[in-house]
Design a binder for these strands. Structure first.
Lengths: 234, 234
DNA sequence: CGTTTTCTTGAACAGATTCAATGCGTGTGG
DNA sequence: CCACACGCATTGAATCTGTTCAAGAAAACG
């Protein structure tokens, strides 16, 4: 069995503070797996047996409500932890994680978490920071949905996608995994119809270029201005 | 100076696992203060110097957006921790905390957090659990705002208030601190006008009794049924 | 007893959803 | 290799839920 290379994770925030030996120890406890596009890393409400780190690819986190609606709380980027239910004292996953493209993932069984606490406190500290950041992000989402118009919210979501998961191309900044109108709708609490209309309008204005499951931001500042909205200013 | 009584906190979830000596040690590091109704325990974006436990009263947590809108992420009940920015690696408070009624609060300086980590790990573990729970609650909020009608959301908010902060009276279950229509609006992402109309309609139907900054739930089940909504059923 | 804060309620308006029909790409199977 | 089917996207029209605007009443406060 090929040993995982320490360099894979040495530079990532959760492991930055670890020595070579510690990195090896951490890796020795992990298992790497490949998840093809569309496959599920874990399912909402399933028993949480492990926590994960995304080595490459993009993962969509999805919550399904009792009445069948779906919302996308976030996308996971390379180098981020996810499925860290154990750090919150939870026994089940609160959402599903689906590979948005082909992914490579490290998994640690939950049973190693207590060891991490004592042997690698910098890792668990970083995990708690991650959770804190996500709590803040989620509060910002509530704020946005509560106070902003749909167009502003879509602008915010598209900007976040471009900034966090964007790849610079000849045309502009392209979201580097497939995003449908429906996905954006689930991120912003609206319908795919409205998203489609809004994106079409932006394309007309030259702010973006878009296509089937594709969004390319041309004018970042223009979008940002839209996102600020006209609630107090106008 | 009067020593704080151990019994004050012995039964609370964060401290349940501690021995008498440990409780004393924890209390010795704390400072108790009174906050009159309407006063601020800490302010949004201020440097976080301490974390808190609410001994008695109710605290409203408020976020103000750049454009002046306010949202109420949650109310803190007796026995709950709040202002735990330090556990998330934050240096400022993400929201303000205002006494909804006269309150008594324990405060620990952030500098003791590392000691808590090593000496009272059950306390910090409980703290992380609290943060995890709040993250889940907040995701539920996003879900609600994204998928439910205003009336359902208000029903959800009122039910939560009644269940978490309700006091049983002759009339029914009364929210035991002053809640204005504006407050409910800020919890549900709507306007005080709409809240007023909805509450009036419910009063008409005999589901609640309400008055100035007062809400008494008469028919819990009736409200719960409303909250489930007619998205899929009708 | 006047002032302020909270609450109520009508009327008009508007943003976004819903309904419905159609177009376009991509990938698959004949 | 082409045709067809399915998933994704677009766009009009009708509708509606909830906001906004406006005015006023009731309860608390000093």
């Amino acid at each position: 069995m090929p040993t995982l290379d320490r360099s894979l994770i040495a530079k990532l925030p959760p492991f930055r503070a670890l020595s070579s030996e510690e990195l090896s120890a951490v890796l020795a406890l992990a298992r790497a797996s490949r998840y093809p596009k569309g496959s599920e890393v874990f399912a909402q409400d399933a028993e949480a047996h492990a926590f994960y780190l995304l080595l490459s690819g993009h993962v969509r986190v999805v919550r399904t409500t009792p009445d069948g609606h779906q919302i996308v709380p976030r996308y996971i980027n390379e180098g981020e932890l996810f499925g860290i239910a154990v750090a919150m004292g939870r026994t089940t996953y609160p959402a599903s994680a689906v590979a948005a493209v082909d992914c490579v993932v490290l998994a640690w069984p939950n049973s190693v978490w207590p060891q991490f606490q004592s042997r690698f406190p910098s890792v668990t500290a970083s995990t708690y920071e991650t959770i804190g950041t996500r709590l803040q992000d989620t509060h910002s989402r509530v704020e946005e949905i509560s106070t902003q118009q749909v167009e502003q919210r879509i602008a915010g979501a598209v900007l976040r996608l471009a900034r966090q998961s964007g790849r610079t191309t000849a045309e502009g900044i392209e979201v580097d995994f497939p995003v449908s109108r429906q996905d954006v709708a689930e991120m912003t609490g609206t319908t795919l119809h409205t998203v489609s209309r809004v994106l079409s309008a932006w394309e007309e204005k030259g702010l973006i270029v878009s296509g089937r499951q594709k969004i390319v931001v041309i004018d970042l500042n223009g979008l940002a201005t839209l996102g600020e909205g006209r609630r107090s200013s106008t």
